[in-house]
Design a protein around this nucleic acid. Sequence first.
DNA 1: AATTATTTTTAGGTTTGCCTAACTTTATTT
DNA 2: AAATAAAGTTAGGCAAACCTAAAAATAATT
Lengths: 218, 218
Amino acid sequence: MKFSISEENYIKSIYHLQVLHQRVNTMMLAEMVKTKAASVTEMLKKLHKKKLIDYEPYKSFILTDTGNKIALNIIRKHRLWEFFLVNKLGFNWDQVHDIAEELEHINSSELISRLDEYLQFPSFDPHGDPIPNSKGKITDLKRSNLIDIPLKKTVVVSQIKDQSITMLDLLKHFKIGIGTKIKVNKRFEFDGSVEIKIDQMPNAVLSNQVAKNIYCVI
Amino acid sequence: MKFSISEENYIKSIYHLQVLHQRVNTMMLAEMVKTKAASVTEMLKKLHKKKLIDYEPYKSFILTDTGNKIALNIIRKHRLWEFFLVNKLGFNWDQVHDIAEELEHINSSELISRLDEYLQFPSFDPHGDPIPNSKGKITDLKRSNLIDIPLKKTVVVSQIKDQSITMLDLLKHFKIGIGTKIKVNKRFEFDGSVEIKIDQMPNAVLSNQVAKNIYCVI
DNA sequence: AATTATTTTTAGGTTTGCCTAACTTTATTT
DNA sequence: AAATAAAGTTAGGCAAACCTAAAAATAATT
């Protein structure tokens, strides 16, 4: 089944709202899709008829399993494109949302599976949000860089942002790679550097510049 | 100024028709955008009001300079995306048109200039059609097929006219694709075949039928 | 030149998704 | 519990882009 861009945006928005607040209402949705409540009601009736939401007038609505699957697919596309824009085209992570908002509606599963492969099946988008796989399954782990990670918590490196040779050299020296377990002991306000501990290694201090490029699964 | 997907498709189609037949009429355009003549007339009035075409009812229509520029920008996007799909995602050139047809309407000049750079500013798309630059200029390099090319001159393949699967197969065997450097050593009068040389390949002979379908930038 | 055929436009209708205004239902106060 | 406020729905309209059928203009034939 194919859906209009509008329908897709409503489905996606309902999904996001359900994650944040489990009860979703018409006004919240109206605000999210930047329209008026009356338009939302109209769309709810349509989505209900297409069996994408369960809906009782004046009561509430919730995505059906089908609706959920469709939402996850749109989100998958959005996040893969964001990953592409940042890691291939060199955008900053705060510049890509609007563009991905358009790209997510491109309709070709072949395109998406190839893109996924081209990007080497990333698990997280540039904001650290998980990318659903082709079956709609999400790794339910959050991700952030060493600057934002809670202290004294052991985390696993999942991505290095800056992949320059100099950066790789530095990482080699500290024995840091994808999968490495790291604990941040202390953060120094003065220069934003962090002291880390890796198993069987002495404590080490990474500059802010380095730390912010190392992303970990929490 | 921003245009709807429909408007963009009309503009692009008028451009293509103008290249093929300099006189364009309503019915041709209707067929090209897969709609009916009445709808075309409606759109012509709208495009005229927006000064994208010169239009006199019952007479004719033609793109204005502005219209032309917009058309070239859409075509630029289409061809860059096609190049991306083939050269980065590994699609075959005969699979990418429909996807590029959607991607060409994504609205971000920043995206396109970065994509262009990422692809290293290609001059031709996978079908050998020239990609307009950001100012709408098309490389008007001299191109001709292997029959008409000067002997002993290294040229670069830029377009394959016949894109049948059988032709594709043959080209694969000889390792010929867009961008391949070729030198024609000799032409045989008898059957019009040509002997070519490609770097790191033994000499090869192509039939006249094949040679005349391979276009190169001189 | 008159008739016929074709092309183009106009007129009137449909669908999608938006809007405002009015009305219902549900929630919150008093 | 009644009154008021807020949220949700319905009704009636609008714009974009499509459609069919009929009318007008142009082109082709006799």
